[in-house]
Write a protein that binds this DNA or RNA. Sequence first.
DNA 1: ATAAACCTGAGAGTTAGCTCTAAGTCAAGA
DNA 2: TCTTGACTTAGAGCTAACTCTCAGGTTTAT
Lengths: 152, 152
Amino acid sequence: MYYTIGEFAKKVNISPHTLRFYAKEGLLPFVERSESGIRMFKDEDFEWLMIIECLKKTGMPIKDIKTFIDWIMEGDSTIDKRLDMFKKQKEAVEKQIAQLQETLELLKYKCWYYETAKNAGTCAVHNTIKLEDIPEDIRLVKERLKKIHSLY
Amino acid sequence: MYYTIGEFAKKVNISPHTLRFYAKEGLLPFVERSESGIRMFKDEDFEWLMIIECLKKTGMPIKDIKTFIDWIMEGDSTIDKRLDMFKKQKEAVEKQIAQLQETLELLKYKCWYYETAKNAGTCAVHNTIKLEDIPEDIRLVKERLKKIHSLY
DNA sequence: ATAAACCTGAGAGTTAGCTCTAAGTCAAGA
DNA sequence: TCTTGACTTAGAGCTAACTCTCAGGTTTAT
């Protein structure tokens, strides 16, 4: 069962333009061609695209993804490199999640800040608010922010 | 206490070039100027930069950040808009975290895959591996991936 | 007073990752 | 056979977010 680039594009939900761009960048060395030069995608190519998508989601640049694809094409001699790469990428994503969770805390604080301001009709309410009227979790974020500020 | 752009750049760890770029994009309407036109940053401007940084980390484009800064400059009449914006941004970040956690699962699977291949000396080991030799958590990811694949 | 270091805005250049156009080739249905 | 739509490559264009260069003005320390 073979697919043209247009059919495969629908399957993986990536435009044919983008698939050709990936091919040009060397991300799809596994794709077969017909005699007349037309790309023939297979079902198993779907798995390759899943790996590519996964690495893209980690923020890895296309050049580095190409390096990794080339390692796979090279065979078992590159297993160590591939393992190292995934370990590093795993750590990178763990850091990204931690970073986003910090950002989320600040956003939660800001939501509370504007909920309170909305109820009072003015942001000025935050000049007179008492510490004990601030919810526990919000107060912690507020104090963390102050600390960062005073570091500089 | 006023800072020149160079001094402030060090404080917030952003290059003077980038700060001028932000100013040009309208992100720093609160920065005062000396008679001769030189920017005079204040301690409290640090907080503005913290908000800008926070929104940038959520992936918000500079134009949208400018809209938000303009709302703050407009005063209390824009509190509702600002609250809505933060609520949406909070949801967006929660989705990003969920997405990264899925990606992390796949990376963990790949780490296990290559650890196993490394021990065996070949990726071919995965053609003959028994289900019961796959750790519980890894097996779950593997099955989830299969399901996604068969959807198409 | 003068050199060094820093400031200014305008605008050019860079990078990544698409996204599209053009000119031509190929394949399937009426 | 002919039309229509999808395929091909090369290469141009686009957007975001910087990043840097330039020519000129300002500040500060000797």
